[in-house]
Design a protein around this nucleic acid. Sequence first.
DNA 1: GCCGTTTTCGGCCCGACTGTTTTCAGTCG
Length: 572
Amino acid sequence: MKNQQVADILFRIADILDIKGEIFFKVRSYRVAGRTIESMGKDIEVVIKEGMLRDIPGIGEALEKKIKEIVETDQSEYLEKLKNEIPEGVLRMLGIPGLGPKKVSAIYKHLNITTIEDLKQACTDGKLRNLDGFGEITEINILRGIQLIEKTSGRALLNMAYADGNILVEYLKNCDRVKQISIAGSLRRRKETIGDIDILVSSDSSEEVMDFFVKYNDVQQIIAKGSTKTSVLLIDNLQVDLRVVKPESFGSALQYFTGSKDHNIKMRNLAMKKGYKLNEYGLFDKKTDEYIVGRNEEDVYQKLGLAYIEPELRENRGEIQAAIKNQLPNLVKNGDICGDIHIHSNWSDGFDTIETIVSQSKKMGHEYVGIADHSQSLKIARGLSEDRVIKKREEIDKINRKQDDGFRVFCGTECDIKSDGSLDYSDSILEIFDYVGIGIHTKFKMTREEATSRIIRGMENEYVTFVAHPTCRMIGRREPFDLDMEEIFDTAKSTGTCLEINSFPDRLDLNDIHCKQGKEKDVRFVINTDCHRVENMEFIRFGVATARRGWLEKSDILNTYILKEIEKSFGV
DNA sequence: GCCGTTTTCGGCCCGACTGTTTTCAGTCG
């Protein structure tokens, strides 16, 4: 049983209790425990085996018992009982923006509506307006909310939100009332998917900023407009929240609106313990309400006795304790990457020539690049036959001889791991390459044992440098393999194999949690794009962001090595 | 449901916006 599945059951229990009208704090306990388990670096089964479940903050006697039951039996008797009380469709209504537990409960109890389809009809027929606390506008808003979830299915990939957010920031800079501006929220933390874009501005004239904001060309609909907060929907269905604060509050507001929620709760508690009160307007003396700091985010952390915590770390995964002890990692930066070694050229299914890729790499300031085309059995992607491997080797040697600036092209491969774990080239061919990446591209349906041993057998080949996109997940399209990551990390360590952080926005594989877990086992990583056209080489920043979210430092990553070092590592 | 050198009972982060009210509840982040 995976951590995510345990968390999902806890979230479900919380939703039902919420609709039933259970006390807020009880409901919150289930959600807090769910979030902790979901983002925990350690396998929940291992935690239970070690008898450490109760040591996790937020898990007491009752939750311990329920979580153990879930892990042992794959289900929860308590949830099964609760499910009989609230129909599935009613739970789904909680996902509609603007609808919370109280309204959903009223809709279910008084009108006996149990599906979103029926709710839509009831709104159209004007049946909701007679309920206490409901009106005509409520009906319209619910209809809009239903339309929205039907259209967007929730969250956007990081690159989409990143592009939208940056263009919008540039637009807002044209408003002369804007003093300071920053992206905040999950986009600033570089989460792999983004629910909505948060932008923070400091200004002495918020009304004018808000007016300027809603006139942005790509605004489809204004959801809410006030003097401190305005929300709009862009034409690509991404929601943007703009907050405006006074300059003296910009730092504390940036801290507050960057989140995460759990990080902020920890921060507020810490502030309280130290005799302060922390909110988006600043850090205040708890007794006298006197303003202490708030202009800069750094000051807030410093005043609370903390080293500055980079946004990517703010997930309540131990960063506050580390900041107290001044033991935060020195995170890897975009500029630390010296070359991308997983790029497809037109020798297989890539779009560009090797020369074009070289020229783009130089533009990005890299010292080298690795061309890793597909191997022979992947016919659909024009995988290279053994003959063509030799020809490609000759072409790369020729290109290298032409470089007069010390730049180097490495000849690599993304060799298929066949279903039994053997590799798609013989050792005598693998020897031709400067380095070997291996990856799975066929037969994705496997048990945990099969998938784990398939990858491990691949890693045991002496020519292998790294495993590409190890879990093979595609965000929103394909679930990750159920892998025994502990075993994968141990083998990576013992064989000296790197694990890839694939930067493509719909992969981000390994993810942040894997990175942190792997680092604790002293595993080395490599950050690549796996791109098939040079326009996408800039996606490397999303891989770096994922590594940062996983607490990785420059020394944890193979392709931060300068040319001389990586040549030595490849033995070429 | 969790938690504790101020507490084993009584707290638990908190402010903005909306829509419904006529002073506030619900939702959101």
